[in-house]
Design a binder for these strands. Sequence first.
DNA 1: TTATCCTGTTAGACAAAGTCTAGAAAACAA
DNA 2: TTGTTTTCTAGACTTTGTCTAACAGGATAA
Lengths: 135, 135
Amino acid sequence: MSNRDDIVSKLKASGVTPTTQRVEIAQILFARPQHLSAEQILKMVNQESSSTASKATIYNTLGLFAKKGLVKEVIVDPSKVFYDSNVSKHFHFYNIDSGELTDIPADAIHIDKLPNLPQGTESSGLEVIVRIKNS
Amino acid sequence: MSNRDDIVSKLKASGVTPTTQRVEIAQILFARPQHLSAEQILKMVNQESSSTASKATIYNTLGLFAKKGLVKEVIVDPSKVFYDSNVSKHFHFYNIDSGELTDIPADAIHIDKLPNLPQGTESSGLEVIVRIKNS
DNA sequence: TTATCCTGTTAGACAAAGTCTAGAAAACAA
DNA sequence: TTGTTTTCTAGACTTTGTCTAACAGGATAA
Ligand SMILES: [Mn+2]
Ligand SMILES: [Mn+2]
Ligand SMILES: [Zn+2]
Ligand SMILES: [Zn+2]
């Protein structure tokens, strides 16, 4: 998924017009499963890449990707959102000392008995976060 | 737990000097199990109360209460932290449409098989968030 | 071709949450 | 009381993220 044509196809398949900026951002994100903040992506686009993108475009694009299901927002740190390029079911360790976010495979946690949702609502995602600290 | 003396005892028991401002904030928080943001508490202290407190004191106090285990920070909304006056084990629904945070009793979810923690780390809390939306 | 339209990008102003600083006020100890 | 420490405070500051209004550039119509 690091090939430029694959990225373009992936965006098209999700109904996202593959502009220069979006393809740049997607190439960074989809190079491998990872957790990046908007600020990190902004820096990466404007350092390692040929083309550039503004802050507004970074946020617009990440919001669009999230809406289209291409990335998942992970909210574990009050100071910034992480964008996760792995959208398959999995959970997270969050190291509160280092700020490091790491994956827990879906099959490493088993949840039986989920509660009934409140009236008039439907599920929009299940999150499990194991906060850890250095010992 | 709405009695002023009880609040003072509770703070002392946790090693927190019961100053005027801390007792005010604690009275609001511990009146019942609830989820409040720093801004909400700031407003409540300066409207419904005899004494007042500054923004810095609200944040200092909430940080202190969290460190002493009197409240639990709940991070589900990227724009603000919720302070939970219920520190016993339980989980949360977060309605992304309304911003409402509600409790899931501990016994409504059963998790067996928790993953091994990464080397050199220890657990600091397990969070389960069921994101919901209005249907 | 040229005008018009539409979508996306942009700089930078703006908003909101939270942190920090330096001085004032309380609380405390002797 | 006097000296010492802790707490409180206003407001400047930082950071993340949003908004606006202008602009670019490709598609399309005439
Ligand atoms: Mn924020
Ligand atoms: Mn509960
Ligand atoms: Zn992940
Ligand atoms: Zn709760």
